[in-house]
């Protein structure tokens, strides 16, 4: 359940930004999560309420922006879609694929007041 630690980090990021950006309430948090990242969205949503309790994001909602996995095949140099870390190149079947996107775990937008 490392999602708990990730959310505790989200909470401290919010608290730091509340001072620098001068807001008191967070209404919405947009997270950009890659399809190949180690984050389980259900676990994140499940733990969100308890981690944010008594914080400035107590009543905030979570919005997920999912980034599809994509890699470049080392063998044939073509772009190939990836839904798992171990996916092979769809063009030539080679398994040496350099991941270009899909590992993201970021806060990208806050709705605040």
């Amino acid at each position: 359940m490392h999602e708990l630690s990730l959310l505790e980090n989200v909470r401290s990021i919010l608290e730091a930004h509340a001072l620098s950006e001068n807001f008191q309430i967070v209404e919405n948090i947009t997270l950009e999560i890659g399809a190949l990242s180690c984050v389980e969205l259900d676990a994140l949503t499940f733990a969100f309420e308890s981690v944010m309790k008594d914080s400035l994001a107590e009543h905030a909602e979570l919005t997920f922006k999912i980034i599809e996995g994509q890699g470049r095949c080392v063998q044939c140099s073509q772009l190939t879609p990836m839904s798992e870390l171990y996916d092979v190149c769809v063009h030539c079947g080679h398994f040496r694929v350099e991941i270009l996107s899909g590992l993201e775990m970021k806060i990208t937008e806050l709705k605040v007041r």
């Binding site: 630690s5 980090n9 990021i13 997270l31 970021k106 990208t108 806050l110 709705k111 605040v112 007041r113």
Partner: peptide
């Protein structure tokens, strides 16, 4: 309400 754009990794503190 206002929107703040950012790009902060969830693992940034670690």
């Amino acid at each position: 309400s206002r929107l703040i754009q950012m790009e902060v990794d969830l693992l940034s503190k670690n």
